[in-house]
C-alpha cells in the first residue's frame, strides 16, 4: 500500500511544474565536503544547469543525514526530497525535462553503460583514495569529515564511516588493491571515456546528456581538488580532449554563476 501510495504521490508531484524555490542541499563547501561527495554534487549541479532548471544551493553540515538515501546531494522540490543523480534524473524526467530523449535505444544503453563505468571506476577510486589511503585519511579525510562535530564525536563518526566504506571496498574486491592498481583502473576508465568522446563536443554529438554531467562532475573535481599527491589528477591530465571537455562545460554552464564564489574555476593545466 505504502509503495503504491508513494508512487502515486510522486506522480502527482511530478505533474506540477518546477517551482522557483527548488533547493540543492550539499555539505559545507570549504571545510567539510570530500572528493567523492563534491563530484556527486557537481554532477547534479551540471545536470540541472544543462536542463536550465534553477536551484538554490544550500550548504548544511548534516546534509548527508538529511538525505533520504544517506548520500549527498539531494534536491528539495515542492514537498519532494530526491537524492543522488539517478533518481534526480528520473524525477526531472517525470516533470518533463530530459537530456537523453533525443537518443535512440542503442545510444541510451551505451550512455547507461558509460555511467556505470564512471560510477564503478572513478567514484570507487575516489572513495578508495579518501578512505583507504592512510596518508589521505589522516591528513584530509578525517579532519574534514569530522569538522562540524566536537570532540570526541568527530573521531567516532569518521571511524564509523571509514569502517563502513572499507567493508564495502572489501565486498567489491577493492580491499586488497594497491594504490597503483587503482590508478591503473582510473587510467583505463579515462582512456575509454577519451576514446568515446573523440573530437565531439559532448559524448553524444552536440547536445549534453546526464553522462556529460556525471563525467564533468568527477573529472572536474579530480582536476581541481588539492590532495596529498597529484597522481590521480596527472592521470586525467594526460587526456587532452577530456580536459577541454571539462573546460567547455565549465565555461558554458558555470561561468555566469562564478560570481557567487562557489567555484574556483581555474583549471590547473
Amino acid at each position: 500500500m505504502s509503495l503504491a501510495a508513494e508512487a502515486f504521490v510522486t506522480q502527482i508531484a511530478a505533474a506540477e511544474p518546477w517551482p522557483g524555490n527548488a533547493a540543492l542541499y550539499q555539505p559545507l563547501k570549504e571545510e567539510q565536503i570530500l572528493l567523492s561527495d563534491n563530484a556527486a554534487c557537481l554532477a547534479v549541479q551540471a545536470f540541472l544547469q544543462m536542463c536550465s532548471l534553477p536551484v538554490q544551493l544550500v550548504h548544511r553540515a548534516n546534509a548527508e543525514y538529511m538525505s533520504p538515501s544517506g548520500k549527498v546531494p539531494f534536491i528539495h522540490v515542492g514537498n519532494q526530497v530526491v537524492s543522488e543523480l539517478g533518481p534526480i534524473v528520473q524525477f526531472v524526467k517525470a516533470k518533463g525535462h530530459s537530456l537523453s530523449d533525443g537518443l535512440d535505444e542503442v545510444q541510451k544503453a551505451e550512455m547507461k553503460a558509460y555511467m556505470e563505468l564512471v560510477n564503478n571506476k572513478l567514484l570507487t577510486a575516489e572513495l578508495y583514495l579518501q578512505w583507504c589511503d592512510d596518508a589521505t585519511v589522516q591528513e584530509i579525510t578525517h579532519p574534514r569529515y569530522g569538522s562540524p562535530y566536537p570532540w570526541p564525536l568527530n573521531h567516532i563518526l569518521a571511524y564509523q564511516k571509514q569502517w563502513e566504506v572499507r567493508r564495502k571496498m572489501k565486498a567489491i574486491g577493492w580491499g586488497c588493491k594497491s594504490f597503483d592498481q587503482v590508478l591503473e583502473d582510473v587510467d583505463q576508465c579515462c582512456q575509454a571515456l577519451s576514446q568515446r568522446l573523440g573530437t565531439q563536443l559532448y559524448f553524444f554529438n552536440k547536445k549534453p546528456t546526464e553522462l556529460d554531467a556525471l563525467v564533468f562532475g568527477h573529472l572536474f573535481t579530480i582536476l581541481t581538488t588539492q590532495l596529498i599527491s597529484d597522481e590521480l589528477s596527472e592521470k586525467v591530465k594526460s587526456y587532452s580532449n577530456l580536459i577541454s571537455f571539462c573546460r567547455r562545460i565549465e565555461q558554458h554552464y558555470f561561468e555566469g554563476r562564478a560570481k557567487d564564489a562557489t567555484f574556483r574555476l581555474s583549471l590547473i593545466s
Binding site: E6, Y65, M66, Y149
Partner: peptide, 16 residues
C-alpha cells in the same frame, strides 16, 4: 519515514 516533514528532516544528524 520518507514522508516526514522537511522541518524534521532538517534536524537529522548527530549532536553531542
Amino acid at each position: 519515514a520518507r514522508t516526514a516533514s522537511f522541518s524534521v528532516r532538517e534536524e537529522s544528524g548527530h549532536s553531542l
